[in-house]
Design a protein around this nucleic acid. Structure first.
Lengths: 132, 132
DNA sequence: TTGCTGATGTTAGGTCTTATGACATTGCAT
DNA sequence: ATGCAATGTCATAAGACCTAACATCAGCAA
């Protein structure tokens, strides 16, 4: 599985190809990058080069936007995914100590607090269409 | 399997990416195209766009050349592959008749004749390194 | 309504990449 | 030595992409 991941993270597509594969404009793709949702590589000539993973993220963003979730919400979702990934990595690398258990509990409580108070943050989580 | 084939034949890579993935020069890649070994698509701006299949072929060409086989030999190999593929397709579509058997025999005999007389053709089959 | 903000469109000027065609080079094979 | 196969190199033109700035337009707040 390691080689597959590597292939999926190889930066091989210029923005023109990504535009066709995702049906997004260059403006949108660069904007999502500016929002920190993707981090394409650059080639020697300073041109953005995207991986299959990048394309997956862009397609997900499209879906989320279509569902009415705004950038702030999408960023939140990716922050969560990031945290989950890190947690899994850590879990694989060393046994869980009592201190870990306390920390995890603490983190989770913090997380719940954040979610409940979302509307007080910089931007609302939901937007436009499909009101809940 | 149909979708996978489709993906492998999608023209998504510009020549710069292909150069890196295959470690061939643009000159070489275009030359192999001129020899009919690959048929990359063109985008609206007339730029060559390559598929994963194209890249496979290019990597194979590299190997064949490293083995000392020249263009003529490589073309021959790809002609054979082409014929095999067509034969398989045909076999799947209809039962084999006596006429088919005769034709196949005939073709194979012709093929053998060509191989034996290769040195009388335009170019020799083998080349440089690794003499047999 | 008025004004602000988020997401995207559009444009301009500059740089990088690719296309084509020609000529040069290198190594075999005759 | 000659010829051909495979590749290098160069010039010119055109296409793709970059950054930065300003424009638009819908939704929301005051």
């Amino acid at each position: 599985m390691k080689e597959k991941e590597l292939r999926r993270s190889m930066a091989v597509f210029p923005i023109g190809t990504v535009m066709k594969l995702t049906d997004l404009t260059a403006r949108q793709i660069r904007y999502y990058e500016a929002q920190g949702l993707i981090q394409p590589q650059r080639n020697e000539g300073n041109r953005r080069m995207y991986s299959l993973n990048d394309i997956d993220v862009l397609l997900d963003i499209k879906d989320y936007l279509a569902e009415g979730i705004n950038m702030a919400g999408i960023k939140h979702i990716y922050d969560m995914k990031q945290r989950e990934k890190q947690k899994k990595q850590a879990d694989l690398k060393r046994p869980v100590t009592d201190a870990d258990v306390r920390r995890i509990f603490h983190d989770e409580l913090l997380q719940q607090g954040r979610l409940q108070n979302e509307q007080h943050d910089a931007a609302p989580l939901f937007h436009k269409h499909k009101p809940l």
